[in-house]
C-alpha cells in the first residue's frame, strides 16, 4: 500500500526524500560496479519483473488476497544494490505514470518499501547464510526468513515516521501493535512465497541467484568412479 500525499508532514517527507536520494545514489554507484554496462537493461528488466509480481494477488483465506512487495526477493535474486535500484524505480514509475502514491511521499515510499525491505531482507539473509550449512537447499530458507522479517520491520519504520511527522494523535504504542501484528501476517505470506519462488529458480538456474553465488563457488566437482554393473 502506497503512502499518499499529506500522510506525513512536509519536513518528514523532505527528510525521507533526502534519505531516498542518498540510498539510490549509493546504489547506482555500487550496482554499476557489480553489473558494469549491463546495469541499465538488467536493472530495468528486474524492475519490470518486480512491478509484474506486485500485480499477482495471492488468495489468503475467506476471499481476501494479498500481493508480494518483492524487496527481499529482489535483494536475494540480483543483489542488494540492484535490488534497491529496481524497487525504487518501480515506485517512481508508479508515482509518475500510474498516480499511485503521492509525489511528496515518494521518498517515504522508496525508504519504506524499497530501501528498508531490501536492506532487512538482505542482512537477515546474509546473517542466516553464515549460521546455516552452506548448501543450495538452505538459500531459499534464508531468503524466506529474510522476506518474512522485512515486512514487519518496514511497518515499524512507518510507525516511527508517523510518530515524528504524523497528522493525528494516535497512541503510538497501539498503532505500532496493530501495524506490526497485521504486517507479521503479511510477512508470513511474503516469506513463504519468496521461499517457494527462490527454490524454483535455484532448481533451474542457480547461477542467476545472486545470493547463491558464494554457495555455488564452494561447490566442488564430484567425480563418481563406480562403474554400473554390466
Amino acid at each position: 500500500m502506497h503512502v499518499p500525499d499529506g500522510f506525513l508532514d512536509a519536513p518528514t517527507s523532505l527528510a525521507t526524500g533526502a534519505l531516498a536520494v542518498v540510498a539510490v545514489g549509493v546504489s547506482l554507484r555500487k550496482a554499476r560496479h557489480e553489473l558494469d554496462d549491463r546495469t541499465a537493461p538488467l536493472a530495468g528488466l528486474v524492475a519490470a519483473f518486480v512491478f509484474a509480481t506486485q500485480m499477482i494477488t495471492f488468495p489468503v483465506a475467506g476471499g481476501t488476497s494479498g500481493h508480494l512487495l518483492g524487496g527481499a526477493l529482489a535483494a536475494v535474486l540480483v543483489g542488494p544494490w540492484t535490488g534497491v535500484l529496481a524497487t525504487s524505480v518501480v515506485f517512481v514509475v508508479q508515482c509518475l505514470l500510474f498516480a499511485d502514491g503521492g509525489i511528496t511521499a515518494l521518498g517515504t515510499n522508496i525508504t519504506l518499501m524499497g530501501v528498508t525491505t531490501v536492506a532487512v531482507g538482505w542482512l537477515v539473509f546474509r546473517a542466516l547464510q553464515v549460521v546455516l550449512p552452506r548448501r543450495t537447499a538452505m538459500v531459499p530458507v534464508a531468503a524466506g526468513i529474510g522476506a518474512l522479517l522485512s515486512v514487519p520491520v518496514a511497518a515499524l519504520v512507518f510507525v516511527l515516521l508517523y510518530a515524528v511527522g504524523g497528522a493525528a494523535d494516535i497512541p503510538i504504542d497501539r498503532l505500532a501493535g496493530a501495524m506490526v501484528g497485521v504486517h507479521l501476517l503479511i510477512g508470513i505470506g511474503e516469506g513463504v512465497i519468496t521461499f517457494l519462488a527462490v527454490g524454483s529458480i535455484i532448481a533451474v538456474r542457480p547461477d542467476l541467484v545472486y545470493g547463491a553465488r558464494s554457495v555455488l563457488k564452494a561447490r566442488t566437482l564430484e567425480v563418481r568412479t563406480t562403474v554400473p554393473a554390466a
Partner: peptide, 9 residues
Amino acid sequence: FGALFIRSY
C-alpha cells in the same frame, strides 16, 4: 514467479 524472473533476466 520463478519462471517469470528467469525469462525477464
